[in-house]
Design a protein around this nucleic acid. Structure first.
Length: 594
RNA sequence: UACCCGAUGGUGUAAUUGGUAACACACAAGUUUUUGGUACUUGCAUUCCAGGUUCGAGUCCUGGUCGGGUAACCA
């Protein structure tokens, strides 16, 4: 079994030298240009700055791979992990821990550079006083509503606050008293004095500090004023000596403000660069919406295998390598795009195919009795663990008189293109024998409940000495030697390609897929799986990639289907019979009361 | 009625200083096969539009069109 990746894997095998050719994304191109001109003295220092208010998702992985990737690719490059914890009302320690675990699991290392915005609160406060003394910030007593009014709109200029022209002394006094806790929440803010008529709303005297009587997860009750993002973020970057501050596109309009604060203070000035966030088909990617799915129990927690969270994907069976490869493939750009989830599946299969040991499991068992096989004989047959990796070796699989095969692998009245078992037909049981179906046993409802077969002892291992061929090879499991298991099958969480595309009275949750989870009990797996550990990944031959769920115990094995194998037969079936039973979703939508 | 950003196949990413539009996914067809897996082969776009500069434009210029972002005391 593959080792679970609970430890950080710092393989730098997939890193290339960005200065040595290949095609570059625009961010790396900028960095190389800056190194040429010596803008940052050849330093390359990035940071990944999550707010600890939720779990990381695949969109964050894109940012993590970008920032940490740059940190390890460039000579002397570094990347910090920094928690942007400036809003105590939303942030929690649980998230701080999960985020660190996820970044590590993805295979990245911040070494000793773990930082918190809250560690800089004192310095930020001093900078704020500096700005006040320079006449570039003032205390404003307008309430939130009034502030909004005077800010104007996209089409209308803003108007100056009546408190805009206080003296430096008065501002300093008021600001110090804000810090001292003399004022009520929301009664005053510190604002930068820029330009209420700027076409960029962010420049209309943005708020730097608000009064918030809230206990911070790290600073406790030390502060009752907290810095706003725009004020804080550039300072954090500056204090850490960041060279390239990479963020998402929606901060493009904030860059003039980022620059303004740093210039007004006259301190070290990193370069902000914006890139497009990731969108995936059949997926929602906002922390707010994911949180909603969790709190409303639409899924079973942040690490539900259907969630696009890193922890959900880990539990589902994704490998860090697959996610890194995916991020490399999608690259980074400045325009919005939606990636086909099939590309993620492909990157997943591509990695899992090379790394996952094969093993046989029967999800929907159909009993097969080999009539001419000795009653109590257990034949141990050699099976290849991974045809893609010779070093994975072989194992022995028990073969007995009573077997199980997959229900889907037998048809009493097969169509032309069905190659698998049927009455009178001979097929191969993988690594075992050729068997021929001689009899079909049905229950009172006409359901096939049992098959009788004969085997050819000459075909042990799976080859006929006379050279005869069979059209199909089936996976199987001994009825008596296999072990029971539960298997959870997953499908897209949403039925709509873009769940965010909703009409007036709709909600993104309307397109939640009612069949996104299917639990199969009574599955049977090879006995070797008794020793499997949580997060171990395997391929169930002919079915897909599976991993051991955290709910699994030696007495009750539980597997998650990470992703199915590509399935030609499913396509052929679909082509022959496009709509066997009408899609339940449209009907269900009609019946939906709203 | 503003400001900022963007536009290359169905999808996503490429294309040295302007010089044959490349790769991957998806889809389709085929070869190999003890996984209807993997691997391999083949097919699939004149680069949003209109002008212009040039021997030559996806790349440069002008004007449109379309898409995204921005009016939390969130980040």
């Amino acid at each position: 079994m593959t080792t679970s990746d609970s430890k950080p894997e710092n393989d730098k095998t997939d890193t290339s030298n960005p200065e040595a050719g290949e095609s570059l994304d625009f961010v790396r191109a900028i960095i190389i240009e800056d190194n040429k001109t010596g803008k940052f003295d050849q330093r390359v220092h990035t940071r990944f700055p999550p707010e600890p208010n939720g779990y990381l998702h695949i969109g964050h992985a894109k940012s993590i791979c970008l920032n940490f990737g740059i940190g390890q690719e460039f000579p002397g490059g570094q990347c910090n992990l920094r928690f942007d914890d400036t809003n105590p009302t939303k942030e929690e320690q649980e998230y701080v821990e999960s985020i660190q675990a996820d970044v590590k699991w993805l295979g990245f290392d911040w070494e000793d550079r773990l930082y918190f915005a809250s560690d800089y609160f004192d310095q930020m406060y001093d900078y704020a006083e500096q700005l006040i003394m320079a006449g570039k910030a003032y205390v404003c007593e307008l309430n939130a509503e009034e502030t909004r009014q005077l800010r104007g709109s996209l089409f209308a200029e803003g108007q100056d606050s009546p408190h805009r022209n206080r003296s430096v002394e008065e501002n300093l006094d008021l600001f110090r008293r804000m810090r001292a806790g003399e004022f009520e929440d929301g009664s005053r803010v510190l604002r930068a004095k820029i330009d209420m008529k700027s076409p960029n709303l962010n420049m209309r005297d943005p708020i730097m500090y608000r009064i918030l009587t809230a206990r911070h997860h790290r600073t406790g009750d030390k502060w009752c004023i907290y810095p706003m993002y725009d004020w804080a973020h550039g300072l954090e970057d500056s204090m850490e000596g960041i060279t390239h501050s990479i963020c998402t596109l929606e901060f493009e309009n904030h860059r003039p403000l980022y620059d303004w604060f740093l210039d007004a203070l006259g301190i070290y000035h990193p370069q902000q660069i914006e890139f497009a966030r990731l969108n995936l088909t059949y997926t929602v990617m906002s922390k707010r919406k994911l949180l909603q799915l969790v709190t409303e129990k639409r899924v079973n927690g942040w690490d539900d295998p259907r969630m696009p969270t890193i922890s959900g994907m880990r539990r589902r069976g994704y490998s860090p390598q697959a996610i890194r490869n995916f991020c490399k493939t999608i690259s980074v750009n400045k325009f919005n795009s939606t990636i086909d989830i099939a590309l993620l599946d492909h990157c997943l299969r591509d990695d899992l195919n090379k790394t996952s040991p094969r093993v046989m499991a029967v999800l929907k068992p159909l009993k097969v009795i080999i009539d001419n096989y000795p009653d109590d004989k257990i034949d141990m047959l050699e099976a290849i663990n991974n045809p893609e990796d010779e070093s994975a070796g072989t194992r022995l699989v028990p073969f007995t008189k009573e077997m199980y095969i997959e229900q889907d692998d037998f048809m009493e009245d097969p169509p032309k293109k069905f190659f698998r078992l049927a009455p009178g037909r001979e097929v191969r049981l993988r690594y075992a024998y050729f068997v021929t179906c001689t009899d079909v046993v049905k229950d009172e409802n006409g359901q096939v409940v049992e098959l009788h077969c004969t085997y050819d002892p000459e075909t042990r291992g799976g080859n006929a000495p006379d050279g005869r061929k069979v059209k199909a090879t089936l996976h199987w499991v001994s009825a008596t030697e296999s072990v029971p298991a539960e298997v959870r099958l997953y499908d897209h969480l949403f039925t709509k390609e873009n769940p965010d595309d909703v009409g007036e009275d709709e909600d993104f949750k309307d397109s939640l897929n009612p069949d996104s989870l299917e639990v199969l009990t009574g599955c049977r797996v090879e006995p070797i799986l008794k020793d499997a550990r949580v997060e171990d990944r395997v391929q169930f031959e002919r079915l897909g990639y599976f991993c051991v769920d955290k709910d699994s115990t030696p007495e009750h094995l539980v597997f998650n289907r990470t992703v199915g194998l590509r399935d030609m037969w499913a396509k052929i079936k679909k082509a022959a019979n496009p709509n066997p039973n009408p899609n339940p979703n449209p009907n269900q939508k009609k019946n939906k009361k709203k």
